[in-house]
Simulated scan of single mutants.
Amino acid sequence: MPHPNDIVTFHDPPIPEGHSAYIPGAGPSLNFDVVDWSDAWPGQFHVLAKEIKDALGWRALVIEHVGSTSVPGLPAKPIIDIDLIVADPNDEESYVPALERAGFELRVREPWWFGHRVLRHLEPACHLHVFGYDSPEVIKHRIFRDWLRANPDDRVLYADTKREAAALSRAAGEHSMQYNARKELVIKEIYRKAFIATGLLKA
C-alpha cells in the first residue's frame, strides 16, 4: 500500500536524459475532441476488460475503469481509460506480448514513473495504463473517479473545463499533452477537496 504522502503528491519526475516516454513512431495525439457522455462506454469497458483478462489470466491483478468515460454524465474523449495492475510493469515480457496478441499496441514506456506503460487499442478505442500494485496513481484515479460520480458541482466544473481546454487547444494547434496541461489547476483543486474528504489531507 503506498504511503498517504505519495497518494496526495503529484509526482512529475523528469524524463532521463537520452530517453523518451514514447515508443519510436508514437507521440502525443492531436485528437482531443470532447463529446457528450455515452451509455455505450461502460459496455465497451467490460468488453475490453474481458479481452485483458482472457489474455493475462491471473497476471491481471486489477482491471479498473477510470477517467472521464467512467463517470456517468461527464463529457469525454471517446477513449476508454483502464488501469491495469500487474506484479511488475517493468517485466514487459510477462504481459505485453499477450496483450499485443489481443489487439493492444505498446505506445508509452515510463519506468521512472512507477513503471507506467500505455498500450493502445483501436476498437473500442482504449488507453490501457499499466502500473505495479504499489503505485499511488491507481489510488488517485479511483478517488478522482468516485468523487466526480458523487459530486455533481465538481462534475459540472470539470466538464466545463474540459470543453474550454479542448476548444483553446484546437484553436492553438496544440497536442493532447498541452490540452491536459490546460486542465491541471482545476484537476488539482478537485483532488484537494477529495483528499480532504477522505482524510488524506487536513483542511
Rank of each mutant, 00 (worst) to 15 (best):
D6N: 11
D6V: 10
V8L: 10
H11S: 08
D12T: 04
P16E: 01
G18S: 05
P28K: 06
S29D: 12
N31M: 06
V34M: 05
W37H: 12
W41T: 04
G43M: 01
H46Q: 08
K50S: 01
D54W: 00
D54M: 14
A55S: 07
V62S: 09
I63C: 15
L74R: 14
P75K: 13
K77T: 09
P78G: 11
D81T: 15
D83F: 07
D88T: 07
D91E: 09
E92M: 15
E93Q: 09
V96M: 02
V96E: 06
P97T: 05
A98I: 01
R101D: 14
R101M: 12
G103S: 15
F104D: 11
P111A: 09
W113M: 09
F114W: 15
F114G: 01
F114P: 02
G115K: 04
H116L: 03
H116S: 10
R117S: 01
R120H: 14
H121Q: 10
E123R: 12
C126R: 10
H127F: 04
L128Q: 06
L128I: 12
V130M: 01
G132M: 07
S135M: 10
P136K: 12
P136L: 12
E137W: 06
K140S: 10
P152R: 02
P152L: 01
D153G: 08
R163Y: 00
E164S: 06
A167C: 00
A167H: 04
L168K: 14
R170W: 06
A171K: 14
A171D: 13
A172F: 03
G173E: 11
H175G: 07
S176Q: 07
S176P: 00
M177L: 07
Y179E: 00
R182Q: 01
K183T: 00
I187P: 12
I190K: 12
A197F: 14
